[in-house]
Simulated scan of single mutants.
Amino acid sequence: MKHTNTHQPLPAAFYHKPTLELAKELLGCILVKETEEGITSGYIVETEAYLGPNDRAAHSYQNRRTKRTEIMFAKAGTVYVYQMHTHCLVNVVSGPLEQPEAVLIRALEPHSGIDIMQHRRPVQKIENLTNGPGKLTKAMGINMEDYGRSFHGSPLFITQGYKPENISAGKRIGIPNSGEAKDYPYRFWIQGNKFVSK
């Protein structure tokens, strides 16, 4: 599958920055997925950072290495997808090699292929199409087959979007059993964007 001319994947160097910085830099970038049905894309409007060994909310807390988390030890810019209940969640591996950190993509503002997304996730209000980590993967056709791929090329990649004016930070969502880590202000979102998860 070929890229559309407008969508050039961000260079590998883009991902080589501290995880908290990357979580903010990803806001406004465009996530693109190419499938048989066509191409879908959306602006990243909300992220969460997970800082590996010392972050009790991270899957790789205390350098835990399992079949699932192994990919978190790979190089920055690798795709980490995992299953939670019936949903898949997509993450950008971050941090230096062997330092298992990642950024969860929590919400998107639909950009292209919206009809395809709505076919996969019929919703009454467009705001509910991709305003959560499990919703956006379903709408875009991101699944476990994407595990271990690279965000630098087909069929799943991130490309340049726009620089948001105002970014907010706050607690991450849905991690009640992670001690003090549940209060870390590692969630970032574009202020006032109606596609941020509720």
Rank of each mutant, 00 (worst) to 15 (best):
M1D: 11
M1H: 13
K2P: 10
H3I: 11
H3Q: 11
H3S: 08
T4V: 10
T4F: 14
N5Q: 15
N5P: 14
T6C: 10
H7F: 15
P9S: 10
P11M: 12
F14S: 01
F14R: 00
E21M: 02
A23D: 06
A23Y: 00
K24T: 10
K24C: 04
K24P: 04
E25M: 04
L27A: 04
I30Y: 08
L31Y: 02
V32C: 11
K33C: 13
K33V: 10
K33L: 04
E34S: 15
E37V: 10
I39W: 03
I39A: 03
S41K: 14
Y43E: 03
Y43A: 00
I44Q: 06
A49R: 02
A49I: 06
L51Y: 03
L51E: 07
R56Y: 03
A57D: 07
A57W: 06
H59I: 07
H59C: 01
S60K: 04
T66I: 10
K67W: 09
E70F: 01
M72S: 04
K75F: 03
V79F: 02
V79T: 09
Y80A: 10
Y80D: 11
Y82W: 12
Q83N: 06
M84F: 12
H85F: 14
T86F: 00
H87Q: 08
H87M: 09
C88W: 15
V90A: 11
G95L: 07
P96A: 13
P96L: 10
P96R: 11
Q99E: 08
E101M: 15
L104D: 03
R106M: 11
L108M: 13
E109F: 06
P110C: 05
P110S: 05
H111F: 14
H111G: 02
S112H: 09
D115P: 04
H119G: 06
R120E: 14
R120M: 12
R121S: 10
V123G: 09
Q124F: 00
Q124K: 08
I126A: 03
I126L: 15
L129H: 01
T130S: 15
N131T: 07
G132M: 08
T137I: 05
K138P: 05
K138R: 15
K138C: 12
A139G: 01
G141A: 05
G141Y: 05
G148K: 07
R149S: 14
R149I: 12
S150G: 05
G153A: 08
G153E: 12
S154G: 01
S154Q: 11
P155A: 05
L156M: 11
F157W: 14
F157H: 13
I158F: 11
T159G: 01
Q160Y: 11
G161R: 13
Y162G: 09
Y162P: 00
I167N: 01
I167S: 09
S168L: 13
S168P: 01
S168V: 12
R172D: 05
R172P: 07
R172Q: 08
G174W: 09
I175F: 05
N177F: 13
G179E: 13
D183Q: 12
Y184G: 07
P185F: 06
Y186H: 05
F188P: 00
F188G: 02
W189Q: 12
G192T: 08
F195C: 14
S197L: 04
S197Y: 03
